[in-house]
Write a protein that binds this DNA or RNA. Structure first.
Lengths: 246, 246
DNA sequence: GCAAAAGTGTTCGATCTACACCCATGA
DNA sequence: TCATGGGTGTAGATCGAACACTTTTGC
């Protein structure tokens, strides 16, 4: 693929969520401003699409370039197309001038969110990001362009979706404890959930396999480890289940 | 606005749902083929966007041009951007050549769905449609471009949304009976719903005002007429209600 | 032995489902 | 008087919320 094939009118942006067993994070890139850390200079990673490329493919390309990971959980949030969306702030325009052939063009973006296992990688610098890093979602209050709005839409969609499909497993290590899963749901909903009710509900779904392994080296009673049981999940989906609403 | 401002790379397409108290319909336009009625020649209305125009605004413009209605319920479905999405079938290409300045351009479309009161209007011919008409959703099995896929996505989103927000009122006359509302939900979910349970659930929401009027001229016990109570609905939304799942 | 998180059951109220008969009207 | 859809209540099952104590480990 060469530059000639870049479509200068449509981009994809990826809200990449991560979870470190404590907090929910989002991967942000820096416009490389010299004024130190400032959220309004941060953005979610994205790029113009190629003219021969699917939207999903473009999103996966961005993810791969930045994180090295393929086969990531990915879902479209929607299109954002305010004519001024990328030109409202002077700092945004400067950034665009530094990375785009047609910085003044009106660009519609198609936003995606994806869920990754944080420890699996450290974000790399890339063609479109001088630096990249994880920021706790709860501490993000402002971003470049319309990316704060995009982040909030992604978060809402994640909340809605995780009630209906157990996609949360994409954020956890392969082997995880019920407490970790519990904590994840609490972080996403930003509220306390009853421990016993949570455990009962999730176990009743029969989509977890108890590995008969225990945590080691923890200074308290070690927890059972589980993994996600894809087979049972598929069976369950086919039978049709509405939600496991928390 | 003149042609010069058309953005040849991005379009909007509108899945317009209607309900005649019997069936759910979708508004389709005809490519004007001379081969008689054929679903693969039908499409949902859409148009390229103007370069200075919001996506939502563009969708409203298409709706207005076709139906004359403003202030319509409108919601984004998402972006569809397969590079081949509009050029797969020969008949699609012919149509494009007849209406677009750059028929070969790759166009990403942002799809919307909207809900209208069918009797309020008859669709008009327009710059992008030689003719337009209502088709029962249950009888649509094929459409031009990727519009069948778009229709299905819109329908899914409608199903999801109507569980959470009482947007169905946008499909009904101002004054309606509980049976009509009941029928609407049955049509959307394409399954029978228990009459008594439905009535209880919807009345318990307190978002209907009984008008103390009855149907006239019906050959059976006349039904009470209701209207949607926007005030109570707003109160309810603010308190936060999850769903009135059917 | 103490700090820290794991793990476990029951009760109560709310909600969902299933189900059948009489009523008011126009023809 | 008949055909048509309108309108109503209850019992049983299921589900969700609230809630406190014992266990196992590392230090």
């Amino acid at each position: 693929m060469n530059k000639k094939e870049l479509n200068p009118y449509v981009s994809v942006d990826c809200v990449i969520f991560g979870f470190d067993l404590e907090q929910l994070y989002v991967l942000l890139i820096d416009s490389g401003s010299m004024e130190g850390y400032k959220q309004s200079r941060m953005a979610v990673p994205g790029d113009l699409i190629y003219d021969t490329e699917n939207l999903d493919t473009a999103a996966r390309r961005v993810l791969k370039e930045l994180t090295g990971i393929e086969n990531i959980y990915l879902e479209q949030i929607g299109a954002f197309g305010d004519p001024d969306r990328i030109g409202k702030k002077a700092s945004d325009r400067k950034w665009l001038e530094s990375i785009r052939a047609m910085p003044e063009a009106r660009v519609i973006t198609v936003a995606y969110y994806s869920l990754v296992r944080m420890p699996n990688f450290n974000p790399k610098a890339s063609s479109f990001a001088k630096s990249a890093g994880w920021a706790p979602v709860s501490e993000v209050h402002d971003l470049a362009f319309d990316h704060y709005e995009i982040l909030q839409s992604g978060l809402e969609q994640l909340k809605r979706k995780i009630k209906i499909q157990p996609i949360g497993f994409n954020l956890l290590p392969e082997k995880f404890t019920l407490s970790q899963l519990h904590k994840l749901y609490e972080c996403i909903y930003d509220k306390a959930l009853d421990k016993r009710n949570f455990r009962r509900k999730i176990l009743n779904l029969n989509i977890l396999t108890n590995l008969d392994e225990k945590q080691i080296g923890v200074p308290h009673k070690p927890s059972q480890l589980f993994k996600f049981n894809e087979e049972n999940y598929k069976k369950l989906s086919e039978e049709g289940f509405d939600n496991f609403g928390f």
